[in-house]
Design a protein around this nucleic acid. Structure first.
Lengths: 120, 120
DNA sequence: GTCTTACTCAACCAAAGAGTTGAAGAAGGA
DNA sequence: TCCTTCTTCAACTCTTTGGTTGAGTAAGAC
């Protein structure tokens, strides 16, 4: 997978088990064992999922005796939200402008499609 | 990968090339060839990327002579935004409550961590 | 009709993901 | 000390993904 932070966050949340873990961590911190309990996979698999979430910056882990409590870091959500909102807004803006154009030329054929680049 | 819609959308956007395509489509519709131009991969690879985006409901394709103009369907973003906002808000709510607790017992040790389940 | 353009399908390959089992590390309890 | 608990590491398997090349389809253009 790609190394950039945004790709990591999206990829981390593309798995339903990991999304479920995030949902549960939004309620409160939990240990690896507690997190693993509801799923019918090994605790090692859950540990791997947590590493993916941690690499994405979505969770952090402290130490408390043998336990490693997992904590949700909700700020990373902002990264995604900003990306999504940017292009959603842009697309909506475009529809709005298209409506204006259509309103201004009520009995003509549609104009050629707009063009442009805007990476990342 | 998992079959549920949310997983498909997150997975589709976990690839930087696909995110770039979405960004460009927010500006305006484009054909497969136009979309492929800036990248140093084959047009077939771009066609595959588009299929992933289409399966996720992020784009749609019409027909116009030999061309297949690609159109961004921004509404699917809402699916993600709702999921993200739900748990972000929940996590923030939790911090707020924790602050209240800490304020109400200024010189005690911290209470045991809260617990609970809340899937999907 | 044939030719050219725009795109997709099929088969293949290498790398990454998600799971497994088994062993090892880390820290408290006996 | 040894024992138990909680967690991770290592090695392996299987599937998916992102890319390739080569052939095939669809629809104007000549």
């Amino acid at each position: 997978m790609a190394a950039d932070p945004l790709s990591r966050v999206f990829a981390a949340l593309a798995d339903p088990t990991r999304r479920d873990m995030v949902a549960r961590l939004a309620v409160g911190d939990a240990t690896v064992g507690e997190l693993a309990a509801p799923y019918d996979v090994t605790v090692q698999a859950v540990s791997k999922h947590l590493r993916v979430l941690e690499d994405a910056g979505l969770v952090s882990r402290s130490r408390e005796a043998q336990r490693r409590p997992v904590h949700l870091e909700a700020e990373v959500f902002d990264l995604m939200t900003k990306w999504i909102e940017r292009y959603r807004r842009q697309a909506e803006e475009r529809y709005r402008r298209l409506d204006d154009v259509l309103r201004s030329m009520p009995d003509d054929e549609t104009p050629p499609t707009a063009q442009g680049r805007n990476p990342s």
